[in-house]
């Protein structure tokens, strides 16, 4: 398990964050909004890995990208070290960018194909003017390449000459160039081979131990998220439906959606894997343009009640767990 968490030191605090996109088609069509992230709140402590799971289209990547301000938030606040960055722009924002970095999913698309590895890793240093001479930068690049397990003489090569895992390590080296306090990992291993996934996960853990970095780890591969995360949040249709200690959520998921999601994970064991009972979800993910009233999951939920359609369940604490579900609420009252 990764490093110690300092619980009283909050690195990132997201409060009632909403990111809506305009999806109006044509000039005179009715105005439509995609509620990609709809009222999400959580905080991440220093040295912690916070896992965010959910299926494609649930808004997890949009949430990550809103936090680093690739997308502008519609409402709510994003506090980094106690300072709200939701509304800031320009140079003020640039100084915050140093602290918060992003690892993209596709190592084939996230490195500029026309730059050498050296140029790619130097770019953030140049943007923020951390080093004065080329020699200092070269030395730092070599050091970073060694940190991620590549050779310093790879510096003059181009990204397309590397394998997927090697490229992902290059992009990790780039994010580390600015000594960030917080890194968002957006499915960093889903495009990689199994044997390489473990390398990247171990590398991320090792970096966390050495540098005390916090991660927001976005993924759909639940077994890896469980391994690396201290706490996880389950997202469905733009909302967090369950949040808790990763081990507890896995062994005893409370929200019906978490239960279905976890039961679907294939077990790498020939006997248990073939016997495993799965909860099959009915129907399909509703469109985020026109989400169901009340609880977003009610259209597919085996326990849906009348109340679920009328009002939206709020996140409630059950021990160390937060769940947004009326059924859980009733059972625990």
């Amino acid at each position: 398990m990764p490093a110690n968490i300092v619980k009283d030191e909050v690195v990132l605090k997201v409060d009632h964050l909403k990111t809506y996109f305009d999806a109006t088609k044509g000039l005179f069509a009715k105005k439509q909004t995609v509620k990609a992230v709809d009222d999400v709140s959580f905080e991440i402590y220093k040295g912690e890995t916070f896992g965010l799971v959910g299926e494609s289209g649930c808004g997890k990547s949009t949430l990550g990208r809103t936090i680093v301000k690739i997308y502008e938030p519609t409402a709510g606040s994003i506090e980094i070290n106690g300072r709200d960055i939701a509304g800031i722009k320009g140079d003020e924002l640039k100084s915050f960018r140093k602290d918060i970095q992003y690892i993209f999913q596709d190592p084939y698309a996230s490195l500029d194909p026309r730059m050498t590895v050296g140029e790619i890793i130097k770019e953030p240093m140049k943007i923020h003017g951390i080093y004065k001479t080329e020699e200092e930068m070269d030395a730092r690049v070599s050091q970073l390449l060694r940190t991620v397990g590549l050779k310093p003489d790879h510096i003059r090569r181009y990204p397309h000459e590397f394998s997927g895992g090697q490229r992902q390590r290059i992009s990790i080296a780039r994010t580390l160039a600015l000594d960030p306090k917080f890194i968002i990992c957006d499915e960093p291993i889903s495009a990689l081979d199994v044997s390489i996934q473990a390398q990247i996960i171990n590398l991320l853990e090792q970096i966390q131990r050495e540098l005390d970095i916090s991660y927001l780890f976005i993924a759909h591969d639940l077994s890896m998220v469980k391994h690396i995360s201290h706490r996880i949040a389950v997202m469905y249709l733009g909302q967090i439906v369950e949040l808790g200690e990763s081990h507890e959520v896995y062994t005893n998921p409370m929200h019906p959606y978490s239960q279905a999601l976890l039961s679907a994970v294939p077990v790498p064991d020939p006997v248990k894997g073939k016997e495993k009972e799965r909860i099959m979800l009915q129907g399909e993910l509703p469109s985020p343009i026109d989400p169901p009233s009340g609880c977003p999951f009610r259209t597919r939920c085996p326990y849906a009640m009348e109340r679920c359609a009328g009002e939206r369940p709020q996140m409630k604490m059950y021990g160390s767990r937060q769940v947004a579900c009326f059924k859980v609420e009733e059972e625990n009252s």
Binding site: I70, Q105, A109, S110, L111, I127, L178
Partner: peptide, 17 residues
């Protein structure tokens, strides 16, 4: 919309860069 352009933005690169 390519990820390397987004990556540059996250690093703090200005529009002209």
């Amino acid at each position: 919309e390519q990820e390397y352009a987004l990556a540059a933005k996250v690093m703090g690169a200005g529009d002209s860069r």
